[in-house]
Design a protein around this nucleic acid. Structure first.
Lengths: 336, 336
DNA sequence: CTGAAAGCGCTTACAG
DNA sequence: CTGAAAGCGCTTACAG
């Protein structure tokens, strides 16, 4: 019952036509009779013929594969994000009859990526995460391999997919202001990171939108280390903010823990929100208000944009993703 | 500066030899002069020639790719395990000049896997997780595609890589007994799951090894639902066990939370250990004693065994993985 | 030890 | 609308 792989030659012979014709019937390219097409298609359907991607690829000098570079470090990686992202990529790829190859990339080790590129196994690559040194981006541009990054690339000109941090943070902040908070503080990581700057920008814009001036004394950035974040929080509390926004969820965890330790209750005593929500916060009680980005969408979009580049269209440099504001218990202002 | 892909023909021409010879020099197959080989290799090295995996594959009717089927559900998935596993697979694969393709498989949806198999894009597949219905396994055997599962497969005869649950749990239990615990309880999930049965078996064996009879009243299995686990724990505590072993870390989390709520302190009042440790427990204070399985090793082994199957060797049906017993604070018996 | 030739399974100008 | 033929870039009997 085993299937000695059926080839286009077999079909041609069985149907008494040339393989050129068979090929055309399948691909739909070139002029070809309706009836012939139908016959071929029917035959294929019945015999469950599937063309060899290898042969097809060789003939067209294409692999119909893209690589997804997964970060290799185990810390500070939002794994659920990548899982959903892969889901998005593979499903978008399938629609275009592409498949995805996996490689692992670390800040200083791109050998996995090189393998794939050098062996000509992929038509393009999606960099799942970016690093300051842009090692992968540099290598790929040098090799002339189309690629795209998810997140902000340190390499100028790189095609990228990114969350619309500025807008998202602006809207979330606006929502907080609208719900009555008027001394909103920010605790966050180093502003060397572009993403943190964007988040802050959104925060400020929201205030401007309402004709307000954000209180600069309430903005404490510089580190996401737990100890420093806790210290920053302690200082902040003396100024009595009514809400604290964390630039990301790892900062937020620290803040939540410290507040709990101090016996400050949320949302009764103070509101808390996060500008980026990974699953880390999922099970927290009270549930915390935060921005939610759709990883699956990031994946599908990433593939679609990359494919354009592969096919030669001049893909636009930056594609922004949608977001959701998840308003939850942590910013439910107590009715006084 | 762009590289119009160098081919074996170019090399042959430049070196004034036939491409047959070039091919042989590269592959090392067939008789060939030392000197010729050296010349070819030197040339290749200099020009950084890399053979086309596509062409090579077509000629040998091989793809030099394996698929890794990632679970598609987001809950109850130990993502860090899969990340490390992928790391292991890709690196083991690279050593054999293989690469890995990604697909997403859910309990009732194996379309992603089918794509890869039907399009002849892979030589074999590694199923990252198994399901009761064994859908993927059945499909692959039907198609004659070599595969292997990580974890126990419901399909009899499937080649599998698994943790040595029985032995590992036996050793961990033995360690607990040796450190002085003598009323050890077990809380755990449904014994319908083979894995839970194995764990229990190890637990019992350890007792037998010491000529002890495990107290069956202290063994409460049947559910991993938080509510039921908590209830089971409450019942258990009345019997005053001196240590509680959880069959997995999700059960363990519940137990830890409940104990904290009851004001029972670990390890002073009672010891706690887990038969399976995911990163969920990583940051828990006190740190909890548990078994640790090496996901990366699972990955490399998985690839190596699969490759044997691909190459036709009759791979052994079950390969057991090593484990480590991580003895931590939660079972540090108080000196009285 | 080395080569000419056929073949892997497709695609695609080029002719009809 | 259809085909014969060359080509994609390798490998591998088969001869020498």
């Amino acid at each position: 019952m085993e299937n000695r792989k059926l080839t286009i030659d077999d079909i041609a012979r069985d149907l008494g036509i040339s393989k050129t014709t068979v090929s055309r019937a399948i691909s739909g390219k070139g002029r070809i009779g309706r009836e012939t097409t139908a016959r071929v298609l029917a035959y294929i359907e019945e015999k469950k013929y599937k063309p060899s991607a290898l042969a097809k690829g060789l003939a067209q000098s294409k692999t119909f594969n893209v690589a997804f570079a997964m970060p290799g470090e185990s810390k500070f990686v939002d794994l659920p994000f990548f899982q959903k992202c892969m889901w998005g990529i593979t499903s978008a790829a399938a629609k275009k009859d592409y498949d995805v190859m996996l490689c692992v990339v670390c800040e200083n080790d791109i050998t996995g990526l090189k393998r794939l590129a050098e062996n000509h196994k992929v038509d393009g690559v999606i960099l799942g995460r970016t690093y300051e040194n842009a090692l992968a981006e540099k290598y790929l541009t040098e090799e002339g391999v189309p690629f795209l990054t998810i997140g902000t690339s340190a390499l100028p000109g790189a095609v990228q997919i990114d969350n619309d941090h500025v807008e998202a943070c602006r809207k979330l902040t606006a929502r907080l202001i609208k719900s009555g908070y008027n001394k909103i503080a920010v605790i966050g990581g180093r502003t060397e990171h572009i993403v943190n700057r964007c988040r802050l920008e959104g925060f400020r814009k929201a205030h401007e939108d309402c004709g307000l001036d954000p209180d600069e004394n309430l903005i404490l950035t510089g580190s996401s280390e737990p100890a420093k974040v806790s210290a920053a929080l302690d200082r902040l509390l003396k100024k009595h903010p009514d809400c604290i926004v964390c630039t990301d969820d790892s900062v937020c965890i620290t803040v939540l823990n410290r507040l709990a330790a101090l016996g400050v209750s949320i949302p009764e005593d103070i509101g808390v929100a996060s500008f980026y929500n990974s699953t880390t916060l999922d099970n927290h009680r009270p549930s915390v208000t935060s921005l939610e980005f759709d990883a699956s969408e990031a994946g599908t979009l990433a593939f679609d944009v990359l494919l354009e580049r592969i096919d030669g269209s001049p893909a636009k440099e930056l594609t922004l993703l949608g977001y959701n504001i998840m308003e939850r218990e942590s910013t439910r202002r107590p009715v006084k």
